[in-house]
Nucleic acid binder design. Structure first.
Lengths: 208, 208
DNA sequence: GTCGAATTCAAACAGTTGTTTAAAATAGCG
DNA sequence: CGCTATTTTAAACAACTGTTTGAATTCGAC
């Protein structure tokens, strides 16, 4: 395996677990068993490494997301909100075949990115992959045309919050749940549980 | 104003904005215009300072929350979920009279605490203020008795995620919203928008 | 005013951070 | 082989981290 990939693998693991600020380059290079200077040699800086870690996932995810959302938008029949959100399942779970624990890791990274380092990752994603956001908004509008742009703005951000926050603490929550309810839970189970929740939230009656 | 309070005021501002890990003691003492060593003298350590910042809010909030939730639990009639979540509004907004921007700052701190420093704040809150969590669970159960304990566990954590995450990026979101929709938004407005969302989410039909 | 405790202060501590350097090692090609 | 370009390496860099020290100052009670 190339040094570059050793670094990316070690970095994504630590970033997901301890956040971007909370992970040092020495921890990464130590876990990846490469020299400290290799990060700056191959990626230039820590910030560029963070972008590279996210891009590796986004480049797999975004075409698949665009494809399913496009299909939804071009159908003749009106989709339900459940269908819109369910469209995310297959592309997200695909990350598991692309990489061990890929889905969970990616969603944790996403959660980190929104809170760590004052939202620079939010800027990175919305500017680098804007099509996904546009298509998603279109699909929601098709499923729920009565929702005003302003209301949709807030509800989509609430949804983003639910997903991202839940997933960034998935491991802890799954641990508690398995202990309290004595049954096995996995990431796919959590995703399937959260969809009715966010769908109902977005579909909530509009306040007067 | 006492040195202790100068430190607390500066710390909560910076913690809310840049996170606990992202804020150094030198930034705090510089903003508060006190000596660097004062933090360790008055609080012992940075970790204890974080606890003190959170406690100052929780000691105001928790008795008020317990009071309204208790009232809800002891009523004869069954409350709606909207009523349960609306019970949080008054105690939360009270923090605004207690301190400028208190509500927003506290919710941002809460968001930070859940992601920063690997969830030690989650442990701190659930162990130091367990009554609030118990009463909240009871109130939701009264409003929606069909919800199993397991389903409730997940939906309450989804809700926590929505609130905490939204509020931790409130400032950015309010900025975008005011720019895009040309109307003023404040923290009370966001709270009132999020309640129908989380209430509908918790009330979502149970998946089979 | 005097004493003793509480507080403030500048300075230094030891440790970590991301990044850079220049020499050493390796690889690929003619 | 020899030569160049790429990559790896150990070491050092300056800046920053939380914490501690011991002397200087301020304060309140007598």
């Amino acid at each position: 395996m190339s040094t570059k990939n050793k670094i990316l693998d070690a970095a994504e693991l630590l970033f997901a677990d301890k956040g971007f600020n909370g992970t040092s380059l020495r921890e990464i290079t130590s876990l990846g068993e490469v020299n400290l200077a290799a990060v700056n040699y191959h990626f230039g800086s820590k910030k560029e490494l963070i972008k590279a870690v996210m891009s590796r996932y986004m480049n797999e995810l975004s075409p698949r997301l665009e494809s399913v959302l496009n299909a939804l938008c071009q159908e003749d029949t009106q989709p339900s909100l459940i269908e819109v959100f369910s469209a995310f399942i297959e592309p997200l779970l695909y990350l598991n075949t692309f990489k061990d624990n890929g889905t969970s890791t990616f969603l944790q990274l996403l959660g980190r990115g929104y809170t760590d380092s004052q939202g620079f990752l939010r800027w990175f994603l919305t500017t680098q992959y804007p099509e996904v956001f546009t298509l998603f908004t279109q699909a929601v509008h098709k499923a729920y045309p009565e929702l005003s742009a302003e209301e949709m703005f807030w509800r989509l951000h609430f949804t983003m919050g639910t997903i991202v926050f839940t997933m960034s603490s998935t491991d802890a929550l799954i641990g508690i749940a398995e202990n309290d309810f004595e049954r096995q839970v996995d990431i796919a189970g959590v995703i399937k549980r959260v969809i009715p929740y966010v769908a109902a939230g977005v579909a909530a009656p509009i306040l007067i």
